[in-house]
């Protein structure tokens, strides 16, 4: 098994008046090669959870297995740096971490930190920039000159240049316009399906979970309250409603049709199937 949490808990500011238990007894196995969504309300522990994956945060209790490494509470982790290369973590609004004079230099910064020689690092940076779909004429520009969406792509390329096996993204589409968000999500889909990266995405957007992800982890009050595959999760809207989440539009449409006396089977899971199903019923009656 590549990534698993066993009885993991985390406490912020331990031993001060601000002490706060952010994670409690997390038991979780992340499927390798899949795209997993981490959802839950603000403050439910999503970000705390994913920051354990590259040992930015260490568990107070429990054990975490990541790829071939083991992180145990109370022990100083070994091979920490190589772990950060293998598990790429992209923070929320990552464009705020850009600092180099040129886009290319900034993207090459990661590999260079891992001891990759200059020339090789540049090659890796160019590969990563191609992967995120940035044109060559921006390579020598200052990151500050780019648009918001482009900056974010540069930041993501900065992580991809380290060639991580696992990519963790904390709300990667926050603040983008709808078109920008969709093209960002299809980038991750490509990285997952074509380049075999295991992907974890923290998100609030159910459309993205529904259309792009394989599995869902639901966090609530610092615990994993549900872990299932996307098909099961969106079988109907009852789970979403129970969690106070707005279901994807297709599911809301199905509900509305059912309320109005249409017959919509559970396995209708895309627009084409739904259109066929409606067509049958409005024509049958005629």
């Amino acid at each position: 098994m590549s990534i698993s949490f066993e009885h993991v808990s985390h406490i912020y500011s331990k031993g001060t008046p601000y002490e706060y238990k952010a994670l409690t007894d997390i038991n979780l196995e992340i499927e390798e090669g899949k795209m997993t969504a981490v959802i839950g309300q603000t403050g439910s522990g999503k970000s705390t959870l994913v920051q354990h994956l590259n040992a930015l945060l260490l568990p107070e209790e429990g054990t975490i297995h990541i790829l071939d490494r083991v992180i145990t509470a109370g022990e100083k982790p070994k091979k920490l740096k190589s772990l950060r290369g293998d598990v790429g973590l992209v923070f929320q609004f990552p464009e705020y971490q850009l600092f180099e004079e040129t886009v290319l230099k900034d993207v090459a910064f990661g590999p260079k930190n891992f001891g990759v020689p200059e020339e090789e690092a540049q090659k890796k940076a160019k590969q990563a920039l191609r992967l995120v779909g940035l044109p060559e004429d921006v390579y020598e520009k200052s990151p500050l000159e780019l648009s918001g969406g482009q900056k974010r792509r540069v930041a993501i390329a900065g992580i991809l240049a380290m060639n991580p096996k696992v990519l963790v993204l904390d709300e990667p589409t926050a603040g983008l316009d709808p078109k920008g968000a969709v093209s960002m999500m299809s980038l991750f889909w490509d990285l997952n399906k074509k380049h075999g990266k295991t992907i974890l995405i923290v998100t609030h957007d159910m459309e993205h979970v529904f259309h792009y992800c394989d599995n869902v982890v639901v966090m609530a009050d610092g615990r994993v309250s549900l872990h299932t595959n996307v098909k099961e999760f969106f079988k109907d809207t009852s789970l979403c409603k129970g969690l106070n989440i707005l279901p994807p539009a297709l599911l809301r449409m199905k509900d509305l049709l059912k309320e109005n006396g249409f017959d919509v089977p559970e396995d209708v899971m895309d627009e084409t199937a739904l259109a066929k199903c409606i067509a049958r019923q409005v024509k049958k009656n005629g």
Binding site: A249, A275, K283
Partner: peptide, 14 residues
């Protein structure tokens, strides 16, 4: 979404 759905319905003769 309702407009996108409308397009799919058109394709199926509704």
């Amino acid at each position: 979404f309702s407009m996108k759905m409308g397009d799919f319905l058109h394709q199926h003769g509704v």
